[in-house]
């Protein structure tokens, strides 16, 4: 599977990654070779095989519906790049 610049740009947009134009060749080449590697999967016969998401095929444990958390806003917002009036600030959201 060969990946060209346009495809790299599209994936980068989907993943919200700004790439330097000078790196595009390198990324296209790397991604292509990784996908070539991934294509080796096609050789496996997987007819009727259930995908394995959790190695132990375990089941979900459930939590009782209880409020266990208290307000820790100040503590948790210490790492925030920008806050005001208890809110996280970001460039304007346009709906």
């Amino acid at each position: 599977m060969s990946i060209d610049h346009d495809q790299v740009a599209k994936i980068a947009e989907l993943a919200r990654l700004k790439l330097e134009p000078s790196q595009m060749d390198q990324y296209a080449e790397n991604l292509s070779s990784i996908l070539d590697l991934a294509d080796q999967l096609q050789a496996a016969d997987t007819d009727g095989i259930e995908p394995l998401a959790n190695p132990l095929d375990a089941e979900q444990r459930l939590r009782a519906d209880k409020v266990t958390e208290t307000n820790q806003r100040e503590h948790l917002q210490k790492n925030a790049p920008s806050t005001e009036a208890g809110l996280f600030l970001v460039p304007k959201v346009i709906e």
């Binding site: 980068a12 790439l19 996908l35």
Partner: peptide, 21 residues
């Protein structure tokens, strides 16, 4: 895009893109 472009190194970016793909 800039936050993530600057914050992540090449290998991380590569893997994110492979995964997204």
């Amino acid at each position: 895009t800039r936050t993530r472009g600057e914050g992540f190194g090449d290998e991380v970016k590569r893997r994110i893109m492979v995964g997204a793909y």
